[in-house]
Design a binder for these strands. Structure first.
Lengths: 220, 220
DNA sequence: GATAGTTTCATACAACTGTTTGAATTGCAA
DNA sequence: TTGCAATTCAAACAGTTGTATGAAACTATC
């Protein structure tokens, strides 16, 4: 393998720069300077700039997805094939939130990179996210088994809202801190996870009146 | 005023192109070609490309915010200074959802532009969004008056989750449609509004046990 | 120690970007 | 009409970008 020193130096430098300054204004020349390698090395090792970004993002999101599925599988095995909905939701949003939130000063490069990725959404990353549907279907299956009386539509909406709360909280964590003047503690990740799971659980288990015809409840 | 034909032609062309192809790959030359005006006209009338984008976004978001406040004010007046939380939330997320969702074939350029803006989040737009906090504070105030027993923290989280569900549903509407194989009808905007409002209301009114220490409920 | 394959390097390329310039044109007021 | 300001225009500018090239340096195998 001839020591992939150059390759991994590029990956590390790129992740660091993207995490710090976003995808918008980091050029290949910035990356190779940070990594102390030659400009042509990026195209030699990765083919193109987009493929470098894709590799960075794939690596991180595979790790998150693996953790998600590990938690999901453990929960379903413990429940004999049927896990409580709270635990399923926790497996869905927990790894993502834990990977991105937490005390800022001790936030890893990977975490800050993933926050950027969720904010800026550059083409190569969007392409990868679009392939994530099969992964989500596994959670749909588990949710169906957990709530056999719920309609598919309600399941999908519940999943959508759970992801919404998790991702939006990550994306807009700064704004929430500012709006709440620090009263919302985003460093207490487990509290954030609990809040998201709690609300998503309510969304999925509330009386069928509200869920099937919510306009009855929420309309003026 | 010397007929601002050129100015508005640029605005219209830019909004159309951004709506169709995103901010990433639309150049000033694309815009002036579409508008049939000279390249220098953009800088003459707007100062810079970023200021053009900012003007487009400001125009649209002022319209949304005005509608939001109109609904909020009407609700509070009808309730003698205290509006039901469902109605406040409806005023918060309704205009945004109505402005972006709905049958695709009859979706306005403005709607598609705002979807792009919520997906790509380019610097000039992000700068404007950051000034939106004062606007949100008005909703925080109304929510406090509506739920005087709720802690500020719970109010902020409720607001955050309501916006999360609305914006994420807009951003990822395509993915939700694909995941649910069309079972989630995103063209039925009022149903989407009702669902978001319903869940956000639950988040804000659920027993204080769950809200203040949700881990009691959602933890394993 | 010659050879073949891999990796590094300096450099050039080609294209595109937003912006500026200064002259030409237009529209309006005196 | 004349004069003046606002607007339009073609052209160039200055800089940056990702990528390609072909020679040099290195590494491991025989």
């Amino acid at each position: 393998m001839a020591s992939d020193h150059t390759r991994s130096a590029i990956l590390a430098a790129a992740e660091r720069l993207y995490a710090d300054r976003g995808f918008g204004d980091v050029t290949l020349r910035d990356i190779v300077a940070e990594a102390n390698v030659n400009l042509a090395a990026v195209n030699y090792h990765f083919g193109s700039k987009d493929e470098l970004i894709a590799e960075l993002f794939v690596t991180r999101s595979i790790a998150t997805n693996r953790e998600r599925l590990r938690e999901l599988k453990a929960a379903e095995e413990e429940g004999g094939g049927r896990a409580p909905i709270e635990v399923i939701l926790r497996a869905l949003v927990g790894p993502t939130l834990r990977g991105c939130l937490g005390p800022e000063n001790q936030r890893s490069t990977a975490a800050r990179f993933m926050i950027r990725a969720s904010i800026e959404s550059v083409p190569p990353i969007r392409r990868i996210k679009n392939r994530e549907i099969d992964h989500l279907r596994k959670f749909v299956g588990a949710m169906r088994r957990s709530l056999p009386d719920r309609s598919d539509v309600d399941i999908y909406w519940g999943l959508n809202f759970a992801l919404a709360m998790a991702h939006h909280t990550i994306r807009e964590s700064e704004r929430l801190t500012k709006l709440s003047e620090g009263k919302c503690d985003l460093d207490d990740v487990e509290d954030v996870v609990a809040r998201v799971v709690s609300v998503a659980t309510m969304a999925l288990t509330a009386g069928r009146n509200e869920a099937k015809a919510p306009s009855k409840v929420a309309a003026r």
